[in-house]
């Protein structure tokens, strides 16, 4: 007679979780019920990498869609914000032995077809992090005036603090190697992490590079960045970057 109790209690790991892997795509999703299925379908069609959706305590149908469609995901019991969700993905990548982790927005703004180019740039260039940039080459993306002003501001702030020229510091389309994944598991900014991560990694001697990519409009959901939040974003990031540089 089989011993289900012993089998259930035995701390074995699924063979899926035991496989040797290379690159994991992390897709954070907060209330992305309108777009997450399409984003995942696009990832599946475009590349052959593993991926995981991090459902950041969504209050809409995101969790149900992920379950229904059999999409691999991590369900956070509470909303941790983009930083907490991303760190969850990096923690998973680290635990499961992935060598590289890419982050891709759940709203369909990033084209997964660009990922192999990011991967090649990372490997060939010997970089630790590669950022997909809308502005390395003129590719038609304009964005709103306020957004462009913010990006321009952060470009100069990063240059002032690190000497590094980053054309798209707010881009969430990134690929990191295992050293950086390990770094992210230890510390990842809670909110508005993109700029802080760039400065923090640059100051610790990690090598960063940008690769031109296209970005599209959101396929669904609502952006969390409003005018007031943008001002808070800029003030908060500036304040803490300066404080952390001095102390």
């Amino acid at each position: 007679m089989p011993e289900p109790a012993a089998g259930l209690l035995r701390p074995f790991r699924s063979s899926i979780l035991r496989r040797v892997r290379d690159l994991l795509i992390i897709i954070p999703a907060y209330n992305e019920a309108d777009s997450i299925a399409a984003t995942v379908a696009e990832v599946r069609a475009a590349v052959d990498y593993d991926f995981i959706v991090v459902n950041d305590g969504s209050t809409d149908d995101t969790a149900r869609i992920l379950d229904r469609e059999g999409i691999p995901h991590l369900d956070l019991p509470i909303n941790l914000g983009i930083g907490g969700a991303m760190q969850t993905g990096y923690r998973y990548a680290y635990r499961e032995g992935y060598q590289y982790a890419a982050q891709l927005d759940g709203d369909g703004q990033h084209d997964p077809k660009d990922l192999p180019r990011l991967a090649h740039a990372l490997e060939d260039g010997g970089h630790d992090v590669v950022i997909g940039s809308r502005f390395v080459e003129e590719r038609g993306y304009r964005g709103g005036r306020a957004r462009r002003s913010g990006i321009y501001y952060f470009q100069h702030l990063i240059r002032f603090l690190t000497g590094l020229k980053v054309t798209d510091p707010t881009s969430g389309f990134r690929l990191a190697n295992r050293r950086v994944i390990e770094e992210f598991v230890k510390h990842y900014p809670v909110d508005y992490p993109e700029v802080e991560v760039v400065v923090s990694l640059a100051r610790r001697g990690y090598r960063l590079a940008e690769v031109p990519v296209d970005m599209r409009d959101r396929a669904g959901g609502v952006s969390s960045i409003t005018a007031v939040r943008s001002l808070y974003y800029m003030a908060k990031v500036t304040l803490f970057l300066v404080i952390r540089r001095v102390f």
């Binding site: 995901h73 991590l74 956070l76 969850t88």
Partner: peptide, 20 residues
Amino acid sequence: RTMAQEIAYLRRVVEMNQNE
């Protein structure tokens, strides 16, 4: 935050084990 992340991870492991 760390606990929530661990819960999400463990949920995934449990689901995978159940499927297996």
